[in-house]
C-alpha cells in the first residue's frame, strides 16, 4: 500500500505530540482509524514546505478552509495569533454532520462556518461568505479541494495569498514526478510534495 499524504494539524514540542485530523475515505484511512492507542505507525515526514509566516505581523489575515483542508489551518491560526495578526477564519463543510474543530477554531479567533447544503451556519460556499463580509485583508491562506482553491484564487486575486494544494502522490519526496502542477517559474512546473504543498497563489495554475 502507498503512503497517504496527511497534513500536520497541530504539534506540541514540549510533550512530543503531533496531531493529525483525517476523514475515513478509503482503504488507507480506514486502516489508520482501526489502529489502537499505544500502537506504532510508520511515518515519513515532515515533508515539503508549510506556510511561511516570516514578516506577517500585526496584519489582517483571512484563513479559508474546505473539508479535509481545514486541519493544517489550525496550527497556522495559532501561529498567526502569536504574531499579533487579526485573523478571520472561514471554514466550509459539506453538511452539518461533516463539521469538525468548530469550537477549537472559535477559541482561537473569529470563525465563520458555511455548509454546502445549508444545514448549519451560512448556507453556501466560503466564497459567498467572503463576498458578504466585504472586509479588506492584507493576506489570505487557504487549503481545500481544488475547485474551492481555484474560486478563492480568482476572487482574491488582488490580495497576497498562499494556497496548499492536493494531488495523488507516489513517493512524497520529489523522485517520481507523480504530483506535478503547472507553475509560473523557469521550469514550468512544481512538485507538490517537495516544493509545496503550499505555494504563492500567483505561482501555480490549478
Amino acid at each position: 500500500m502507498l503512503r497517504r499524504p496527511i497534513s500536520i494539524a497541530d504539534y506540541d514540542k514540549q510533550i512530543n505530540q503531533l496531531t493529525i485530523i483525517y476523514k475515513v475515505f478509503g482503504e488507507g484511512t480506514d486502516w489508520l482509524a482501526r489502529q489502537l492507542p499505544g500502537g506504532q505507525i510508520n511515518v515519513l515526514g515532515p515533508l515539503g514546505n508549510g506556510f511561511d509566516l516570516s514578516g506577517i505581523q500585526g496584519q489582517t489575515v483571512i484563513v479559508i478552509g474546505g473539508g479535509v483542508g481545514v486541519p493544517p489551518l489550525y496550527n497556522l491560526v495559532k501561529q498567526l495569533n502569536s504574531q499579533f495578526n487579526d485573523v478571520t477564519a472561514i471554514l466550509g463543510y459539506q453538511s452539518k454532520v461533516s463539521i469538525f474543530y468548530e469550537k477549537e477554531f472559535k477559541d482561537l479567533t473569529q470563525t465563520y462556518i458555511a455548509t454546502d447544503d445549508g444545514t448549519y451556519g451560512y448556507d453556501g460556499l466560503v466564497t459567498d461568505v467572503i463576498r458578504e463580509l466585504r472586509f479588506s485583508y492584507d493576506h489570505y491562506f487557504s487549503c481545500g479541494p481544488t475547485g474551492m482553491l481555484k474560486a478563492v484564487q480568482h476572487q482574491l486575486s488582488d490580495i497576497d495569498g498562499y494556497i496548499s494544494i492536493e494531488e495523488r502522490m507516489g513517493c512524497g519526496v520529489g523522485a517520481c514526478f507523480a504530483c506535478v502542477c503547472q507553475a509560473d517559474n523557469d521550469k514550468g512546473y512544481v512538485k507538490i510534495c517537495q516544493d509545496g504543498p503550499v505555494f504563492h497563489a500567483k505561482e501555480v495554475t490549478l
Partner: peptide
C-alpha cells in the same frame, strides 16, 4: 518533456499504475 496531465498515479491491488509520461529536463 512535461509529461502527462494529473492524476498520474493510482493505487491498485498489490501495486500501482503510473502514467508520468517521461517527464524529464
Amino acid at each position: 518533456r512535461f509529461g502527462n496531465p494529473t492524476p498520474r498515479v493510482a493505487e491498485t491491488s498489490s501495486g500501482m499504475l503510473n502514467a508520468i509520461g517521461l517527464q524529464n529536463p
